[in-house]
Design a protein around this nucleic acid. Structure first.
Length: 588
DNA sequence: GCCGTTTTCGGCCCGACTGTTTTCAGTCG
């Protein structure tokens, strides 16, 4: 039972309790617990044995701890099963229709016997929904529209696909005369690995003009709503975009508000409340005296910094705003110094035409130089990876010669740039490395990776990986969990044990920056940092354009509270070589 | 259901929009 599976079951309880009109704070407890679990790098099956047990985890008390224990022991949760038993199969799906919240779900279920999306659609078509209390023809039509959009499938999109589109929109807005400031907000600004809708924010003295210009710009394929402060619509392809425009004095407060996360905002407002303040999307206000209604003038809100300062907090980078302890850290002045894109000096995982890459070594080197890097590492696939046209052992020798010649040329030209030769070696099903001693001796470093036999169970896979890390031959471990976002689940792996092994043997764990991997994930990266493991952010480039992926790796690292010094590709080349040499001589 | 340098009991975020209402419930972010 994985953390994600447990989080989902707690979330289902929260949803069903809403339908039953339970105490909202009880509901929130389940929601918070689910989110808290998603933020854990370590598996609950391990944490239950840690000091203090599950109840030591923030957001998890006696009742939820017991439920987690039951799930871990039996794979089942009696309480959830009993809640679910009252409804037909598919009822939870019904709650995912926008516009149909828990109250209306209860209404259609109890009055019409509707318990699935199909049944709801039919009831709308038969005009039964409009007869219900508080509903009408318009609500019915909206539900039908929402169901149609639901069937089209609006699953989340990759950050890597959505960020460029968000930046285009922001670029357009910043070009408007009436716009003072513009930025994207929401989960895209927090850098979440996948994004649902795009939230875009602008400030202006004339919000209506900005809204008009955006609605008419042709960026949206369909404009759903165009008011004086808000425009909503869909990009070509169906992704929803919400633009909101605020007055300049509310810019910072609105940016915090629309960046979220929801749980982060709730924490901020709780903190405000304890100080006799109130926070909303327009600013920070003093709580009015008894009997007084008006809020008066805001005391902060023009910038994000002013809002956080009013709550006696340091400004919190958006990537950290997930209610994972960032507010306590900001209050204590203990926010981490986060890695920045400019800290990156190299890219140590890239493929060439020797295998399944599309560029040559020299082309990759030039592209990296143009980005301001001082070195790179070429790491083509080892021989047994047939699907990626793994490199023959003899060709590693040719690569060595090509790299040496290239470096000699850089030296001759006085260029401060160096190409290292690495090798992405498969960790075979039996844990052996897919490379002989001769090949290993030719290269400057080795990346270990799993590309085959991924269906092994977690215990076996973990032993296999740890065996490779302990061999002394592996300097880095690439895309550690093998997940493909929106594609393939991670293979079973006890990440906590692998992190411990990486710490013990001083192997760097990769944050693979490819937008469909981002592996390690943010929470696993944070676990690695806490356990003293070095990290390496690599693009795994198979083409020149892929060097751009580095930013997504850096964003993921920032979400994992990663400081620059633990990331080996922030190091100057001599330090990197020193570390590799020490590793190879077995001293480290 | 969780949590505590104001509390082990009594608190627990905030506002906008919509459609349905004669003053507000439900939903959303």
């Amino acid at each position: 039972m994985t953390n994600e599976q447990i989080a989902r079951q707690l979330e289902q309880i929260a949803l069903l309790l809403q339908v039953e009109d339970a105490n909202t704070f009880r509901i929130r407890s389940y929601e918070r617990a689910a989110e808290a679990i998603r933020g854990l790098g370590e598996e609950l099956s391990v944490l239950r044995h840690a000091e203090g047990g599950l109840e030591a985890l923030p957001g998890i008390g006696e009742a939820i701890a017991q439920k987690i224990e039951e799930l871990l022991d039996t794979g089942e949760l009696t309480y959830l099963r009993e809640l679910l038993a009252q409804y037909p199969e598919g009822f939870l799906e019904l709650l995912r229709i926008p516009g149909l919240g828990p109250k209306r779900a209860a209404l259609v279920f109890h009055e019409l016997g509707v318990g699935t999306v199909d049944a709801l659609e039919e009831a709308c078509i038969r005009e039964q929904v409009r007869e219900l209390k508080g509903m009408g023809a318009k609500s019915e039509a909206k539900l039908l529209d929402a169901i149609a959009k639901y069937w089209q499938g609006r699953e989340r999109a990759l950050l890597g696909d959505m960020l460029p589109r968000a930046e285009e929109i922001v670029g357009f807005l910043r070009g408007l005369d009436a716009v003072i400031a513009a930025d994207y907000a929401g989960s895209a600004r927090r850098g979440r690995e996948t994004v649902g809708d795009l939230d875009v924010l602008a400030s202006s003295k004339d919000p209506a003009a900005v809204c008009r210009a955006f609605a008419e710009a042709g960026i949206l394929a369909e404009v759903e709503l165009a008011g004086d402060t808000k425009v909503s619509g869909y990009l070509p392809g169906g992704r929803q975009v919400d633009l909101r425009v605020v007055e300049p004095e509310s810019w910072g407060a609105a940016l915090v508000y629309f960046t979220g996360s929801q749980q982060h905002n709730i924490r901020l407002r709780e903190r405000a409340q304890a100080r006799g303040l109130r926070v909303n999307e327009y600013g920070v206000y003093r709580e009015p005296a008894e009997g007084d209604e008006a809020l008066g003038e805001p005391i902060a809100g023009e910038t994000e910094e002013s809002l956080y300062a009013a709550l006696e907090l340091a400004w919190i980078p958006p990537e950290l705003r997930e209610d994972r302890g960032e507010i306590a850290a900001a209050a204590a002045g203990e926010l981490p110094e986060l890695i920045e894109p400019a800290d990156i000096r190299c890219d140590l995982h890239m493929h060439t035409r020797y295998t399944d890459g599309r560029a040559s070594i020299a082309e990759l080197a030039e592209a990296a130089r143009a980005r301001g890097y001082t070195h790179i590492g070429i790491t083509d696939h080892s021989a047994s990876l047939y699907v990626a046209d793994g490199i023959a052992a003899a060709d590693v020798g040719r690569q060595r010669e090509e790299v040496d010649a290239l470096n000699a040329r850089f030296d001759a030209e006085g260029a401060d740039f160096r190409v290292l030769l690495g090798h992405e070696v498969d960790i075979l099903a039996d844990g052996a490395l897919d490379a002989g001693e001769e090949t290993l001796a030719l290269v400057d470093y080795v990346i270990g990776a799993v590309h085959q036999g991924m269906s092994a169970d977690a215990d076996r896979m973990t032993a296999r990986v740890i065996g490779a890390l302990a061999s002394g031959h592996v300097d880095m471990f690439a895309h550690p969990t093998g997940r493909i976002l929106l594609g393939r689940d991670a293979y079973g792996l006890h990440v906590g044990e692998v992190v411990a092994a990486a710490a013990e043997h001083d192997v760097a764990l990769e944050i693979n920056a490819s937008p469909d991997r981002l592996d390690l994930s943010d929470v696993h990266a944070r676990l690695a940092v806490e356990r003293g493991v070095r990290l390496c952010i690599n693009t795994d480039a198979h083409a020149l354009g892929h060097l751009e992926f580095m930013r997504f790796g850096v964003i993921t690292a920032r979400r994992g509270w990663v400081p620059p010094e633990v990331v080996i590709n922030t190091w100057p080349l001599p330090r990197l070589l020193e570390w590799l040499t020490a590793r190879r001589s077995g001293c480290s």
